[in-house]
Design a protein around this nucleic acid. Structure first.
Lengths: 200, 200
DNA sequence: CCGGAAATAGAACATACGTATGATTTAATC
DNA sequence: GATTAAATCATACGTATGTTCTATTTCCGG
C-alpha cells in the first residue's frame, strides 16, 4: 500500500514549483527539476505521466486553497464588511500565500488562453459573483457594469504586482518584499477607485 | 532558383509577429517562421543575428510607435496637464492602436519574463520616468514610492483589460468593444486611486 | 557587360529536450 | 525469509531546435 520513499512525488512538485517560478515553464527542463529534487529523471514520467501533467499538478496544488482562503476571509469580515475589507479579502490571500508558487501559477494560467478560460469558468466565476454581491451592498449606487469593470481593474493591478513583481523591483526599484505594505497600498488605491463617481 | 526579394526582412517580421501571437515565442520555431514567410531558414540569422534579436525586433516594431504616441499625447496636453490627461496619455494609445496585434503581443511579452525584462529595461524605463515626473507636478504631496506603485497599479489594470479582454467578455459579459468608454472608466478609476491619501 | 558586394540557398552540426526501456532495488505481506 | 509489486535507477532513443558553413545567385555601379 504505502509506497517506499513516497515523498519523491512531493519533492518533485516542490522542485518544479521553485524552478517554474524562477525560470518559467519552458525554460525549466525535467533534468533541472530532477536535479533540484535529487531524484532520478525517470521519476517524473513515472509519478506524473508527462511534463504537462506535472505543470497542471503544480498549479492544482495551489489553486483551490487560495480561492477558499479569499472566500473565508470575506466571511470572516462579518455580515457587513466594509469596502476595504472586501478588497483585502480579494487580494490578500493571493499576495500572501506562497509568493513564488502564486507567481508561476498566475503566469502560466494567463499565458495559456484555453487553460485560463477553463480556470475562470470553473473557479473564478463563482468567486467573482460572490465578491460582486458584497460590493453591491457597500456601493449601492454603482451600476453593475461599472462595478465589474472596477473589480477587474483591481484584479489586473494585483496580477501585475504579483506576476511582474521581480521585474518591477529590478527596473524601478520598487520594494515588493514588504508584502503587507503593498497590500495596504493596493487596498487604498482600489477603494478610492471604487468610490469614484460613475462614468456617464 | 527563386527570384530575390528585398522585402525578406519585412516578410520575416510579419510572419514572426503572426506566429508569436498565435503560439508564443518558445513554441514558434525559426522553421515555422521561415515556412510562413516563404523564406530560407538561414535568412533569419542573416538579417537578424539570432532568434532573440528577432523577437526584440518584432516587439520593437510595435512597441516603439505606441510609446512615442504616449509621449506625444502627454506633450499635447500642454505644459500643465491634469491628472486625468496624464493617465489618458498613458493608457489611451495602448488601448487604441493595433487592437488585435497589441493584445497578442502584450500577452506573449508578459508571459515571457526574460523578454519582458529586456523590453522594460530598454524601452519602458524612460517612459515611466517621464510620466512619473508629470505625476509629481499634479501630486506634489504623494511620496515617490507611492506614486510609482499607483502608476504600476494603473498599468496592471490596463494590461489586464487589454490582454484578457476577450475572456472577460465571455466570462463576465463585459463590453470590451466600447474602447472609448473603457478608457474613460479606467481613467476615472485610476485618477481616484492616485488622489487617495497616502498609506502610512 | 562585368565584377564585387549583398543576399539567398541547401545542408549539416551540435545540442538539449521529453520520453521510453529494461534492469535493479526497496518495502510490505504472507 | 520468500514473494511480489511498487519504486528507483542508468541509459538510450528519436526528434526538434538554433546556428553555422559553404556554394550559388542576384543586384547594381563602372
Amino acid at each position: 500500500m504505502t509506497a517506499p520513499r513516497s515523498d519523491t512525488k512531493t519533492r518533485i512538485l516542490d522542485a518544479a514549483e521553485k524552478l517554474f517560478g524562477e525560470k518559467g515553464f519552458d525554460a525549466t527542463s525535467l533534468r533541472d527539476i530532477t536535479a533540484e529534487a535529487d531524484v532520478n529523471l525517470a521519476a517524473v514520467n513515472y509519478h506524473f505521466q508527462s511534463k504537462d501533467s506535472l505543470i497542471d499538478a503544480a498549479i492544482l496544488r495551489r489553486a483551490a486553497p487560495v480561492n477558499t482562503a479569499r472566500m473565508a476571509r470575506l466571511e470572516a469580515a462579518g455580515p457587513h464588511p466594509t469596502l476595504e475589507q472586501i478588497i483585502e479579502a480579494f487580494i490578500g490571500p493571493v499576495l500572501e500565500l506562497h509568493e513564488e508558487a502564486m507567481e508561476m501559477m498566475m503566469t502560466r494560467v494567463f499565458s495559456a488562453p484555453d487553460v485560463m478560460q477553463r480556470v475562470f469558468r470553473d473557479h473564478m466565476s463563482i468567486l467573482v459573483r460572490r465578491f460582486m454581491d458584497a460590493l453591491a451592498v457597500v456601493l449601492p449606487d454603482l451600476p453593475e457594469a461599472e462595478r465589474m469593470w472596477r473589480l477587474q481593474f483591481t484584479a489586473g493591478a494585483m496580477a501585475h504586482a504579483v506576476t511582474r513583481g521581480r521585474i518591477l523591483q529590478e527596473t524601478f526599484g520598487l520594494d515588493v518584499k514588504g508584502r503587507g505594505l503593498m497590500i495596504a497600498r493596493l487596498v487604498k488605491f482600489a477603494a478610492a477607485g471604487f468610490r469614484a463617481p460613475e462614468v456617464h
